[in-house]
Simulated assay, not measured.
Amino acid sequence: MTIAPLETAKPAVRSGRPRVGVLLVNLGTPDTADAPGVRVYLKEFLSDARVIEDQGLVWKLVLNGIILRRRPRTKALDYRKIWNNETNESPLKTITRSQADKLTAALSDRDHVVVDWAMRYGNPSIRSGIDALIAKGCDRILAVPLYPQYSAPTSATVCDEVFRVLSRLRNQPTLRVTPPYYEDDCYIEALAISIETHLATLSFKPELIVASFHGMPKSYVDKGDPYQGQCVATTEALRRRLGMDETKLLLTFQSRFGDDEWLQPYTDKTMERLAKEGVRRIAVVTPGFAADCLETLEEIAQENAEIFKHNGGEQFSAIPCLNDSDPGMDVIRTLVLRELQGWI
């Protein structure tokens, strides 16, 4: 077995006491809204054994021979529908940067705290984020996976990459990771405020609200992933806060991929069913996403809206994610300050 040589850290820029780094991490995005950019992103994403657990020969043949030849073209079209043309980047990147900037401002009275941001897949990478924090004199780092509900394909793979980066360092910073916050009071309250604020702007009153979470193969949950249970807990807490029952706030799962059975009920099938059953006005919230992205802005706000209306629905509204809103930033700031206790 060959052991990679340890890296020598770059000289840190220090002024006084050591600094504490905070690294916000979201899932990722292509660098460009074209087939080559999407291909690079999908290859990194789908080559992660946390995302696709069976990385055997058959999968590699399917990935490289079929998926990476066909899917980048179609997904690039979807990305172009939501692309931030002003900054030439995806909304996920724009929002995550803003979250880091606003957190920096919120912690401005603590001059030894440094905030940066990264993507698990794509750029800026986790490695570049950690390198930047170390270069600024941080000897302690708090990693903040921006996923309210824990799952191996999201939260765990962030930790995997952070640990992988640290494993190359001779002089490692001390590390902490924020836990999932799926039923944290500040998170549920922020969701409720966001929903109520958005509904007040609508010209119609939704007959019900659908809470759509990102899907996952059922087999992952059967093997012990706690994700489904945490999605249920979030939905139940939100129902209590809003005074709704399961007929007024529904739980569904979106974004399934491949032929395996995924967590149900499926969001798209639910949209079709509700419209055919006579529901005419609906709103959708996506509590599993800390920032709007392809899955919320295109899949929900466009694709699922079309499914609903095609089958008889009339009015559809996608409720924005918490993003960098005041309630959303309250959640991030609360989580960070809680986990930094004893460091600051």
Rank of each mutant, 00 (worst) to 15 (best):
S151F: 03
L238C: 05
P148E: 01
Y182H: 13
A143I: 08
I209C: 08
R176N: 06
I141S: 01
A156D: 05
L242Y: 10
I193E: 13
L208V: 07
S203E: 15
P153Y: 03
V144I: 15
P145L: 03
I188Y: 00
K223L: 08
D185I: 11
E183N: 14
R241Y: 09
E236W: 12
Y182D: 09
S219Q: 15
M216R: 04
V144R: 06
L199R: 07
R168A: 14
R170P: 00
T178W: 07
P206L: 08
A152H: 04
T174H: 15
R170Q: 13
I195L: 09
H198C: 14
L199T: 07
T154A: 09
T178K: 02
A143K: 01
T197L: 08
F213Y: 12
P173M: 03
P180Q: 05
S219W: 15
Y227F: 12
A233M: 10
L169P: 00
R168H: 07
M216L: 15
R164H: 13
P179S: 10
L142G: 00
V232T: 10
P148A: 12
R240F: 15
G229Q: 14
V144F: 12
P173K: 06
Q172Y: 00
T157V: 07
L146K: 04
S167C: 07
Q149R: 07
P173A: 02
A233W: 12
T157Q: 03
T234E: 06
Q228V: 07
V158Q: 02
K218M: 11
Q172H: 00
C159I: 12
N171W: 08
K223N: 05
P153V: 02
S203Y: 10
A190S: 12
I195H: 00
E196A: 15
T154H: 03
Y150S: 04
C186S: 12
Y181F: 13
F163I: 11
Y147A: 02
I141D: 00
I209P: 00
V165S: 03
P226D: 03
S203A: 15
I193W: 08
E236Y: 14
F204Y: 11
L202G: 06
A190D: 01
V144E: 01
H198P: 05
A237P: 03
R240T: 13
P179L: 14
S219T: 13
T174F: 05
Y181L: 10
V165A: 09
T235Q: 06
T201C: 06
S194P: 04
E207D: 11
Y227T: 00
R176Y: 06
I188N: 01
I188H: 01
P217T: 14
S167V: 03
S194Q: 11
R170H: 09
Q149F: 08
A200R: 10
S155W: 10
T174Y: 11
S167A: 13
D184E: 12
Y187V: 04
R241A: 13
R164N: 15
A211N: 03
V210Q: 06
C186T: 14
N171V: 08
E161Q: 11
Y147D: 01
E161L: 13
D184I: 03
T178N: 10
D184L: 09
E189M: 09
E246S: 15
V210H: 02
R240N: 10
F204W: 12
L242R: 08
V177I: 14
K205H: 15
T157I: 07
V165R: 02
T201Y: 08
H198E: 14
P148V: 04
V177M: 14
R164D: 13
D245G: 15
A192G: 06
H214P: 02
L202S: 07
L169R: 02
G243Y: 13
